[in-house]
Simulated scan of single mutants.
Amino acid sequence: MSERRYADISAEERMEWFHESYGNVLDGGRTFECILLALGDYLSKLAEAASADAAMAALLNDWLGAEIRDASEWRTYVSDNSSMFFSAVGHGPVMHNLLAYAEYGIVLPVEGAAGDWAEHIQAMIDQVDAFWQATPIKQWGLEELDEIGPLLTWAKGRWALDNNEPIEPAALARLGNVSERSIRNLMSKKDKGLRSENGKVLASDALAWLRVRPDYWDSIWQRQEHDDHEQAAEPVEDAYVFVPVSRDGSIFHPGLRGANGYRVGAKGSERDFDTFEAALTHLHALSHPYWRRQNANGAWVIVSGIRWERLSERELSDFADDPERRLQSVL
């Protein structure tokens, strides 16, 4: 890597890097667990603790199909299943895609957005920002646990430079992989420093400083073609998707096609889909994922998911080739 500047790496390679390293830097999904626990604490101040527990258990049962029978155990459920909240909450996938833009300067394939990347990026920022602004992060004492705010700072900073606007020092520090203090020291220099305007660094100075840094990921989303994204959106070996995982570690995968296709949904409201992709999309839309798979006797039984896992197309193929394969982390 020392022989190549980050700026020389293509969008396709950056996508691979992003998928392989996701969760190592920032993951807004981790903040959802903290928000739910804080919400329960707030309700316990508003009403009696038993009533607050009942309300939180009812919410999780209805929203995620948690099947919490003892309301006092809802906190344990949240802690044990925190990884699934990222997919269950509608803002989660948006935060996932926004991080790819903030960190690598690219846009991930999204149906209906190809060819209008600027509007798409602005919409992602606005959606995540609205959610974050509506969440009482400071009031509930979640500042140190908040990963949504830093994500927004990063994305807004890149967006400012992409539009030739001044950038916040904290955002420039993120893009340049240095401390905010280092940026402010450069801003305080009269000669060969970073010129500022109303506390922000001028775009021209920020970009000039970033471009000489070998570890700076420049924005290349403007050069990503519509056709490239259509191709990337097709199932490929290194593409990643979120799939439901059952209590025994089995997952929903392409090898579960029956005579009528992929059957998903709760008993009494099941639907058949011709393709794995269509069935998975329907599972994402359900409040709780259910699907059919064959048991050891060859009978098709309903399986209930307890969380979601991000897996590559290659990993899905491994499950399809081995019906008895399980995710060991769940067992």
Rank of each mutant, 00 (worst) to 15 (best):
R4L: 10
R5F: 10
A7F: 03
I9E: 05
S10A: 07
E12A: 10
F18N: 04
S21N: 06
G23E: 11
V25Q: 00
R30W: 11
F32N: 11
I35E: 14
I35H: 13
I35C: 14
A38R: 05
E48P: 07
A52F: 14
W63D: 02
A66N: 06
W74E: 05
R75Q: 15
N81T: 14
V89S: 11
G90E: 12
A102Q: 04
A102G: 05
E103Q: 09
Y104Q: 01
G105D: 11
A113N: 10
I121G: 07
I125P: 14
D126A: 11
D126Y: 02
Q127P: 05
A130Q: 01
Q139D: 07
G141A: 08
L142T: 00
A155D: 03
R158K: 04
W159L: 05
W159A: 06
L161D: 07
N163M: 05
E168Y: 03
R174V: 02
G176C: 02
N177K: 09
S179K: 12
M187C: 15
S188E: 13
K200T: 12
L207S: 13
L207E: 10
P214F: 07
Y216G: 00
W217Y: 15
S219Q: 10
R223L: 03
H226M: 01
E230C: 09
Q231A: 15
A232D: 06
V236C: 14
F242M: 13
D248L: 12
F252N: 14
G258T: 09
Y262S: 03
R263P: 07
F273D: 15
L286P: 06
W291Q: 09
Q294S: 07
W300Q: 02
I302V: 09
I306G: 09
S312I: 06
L316M: 02
L316E: 01
D318F: 05
D318K: 02
F319Y: 15
D322V: 14
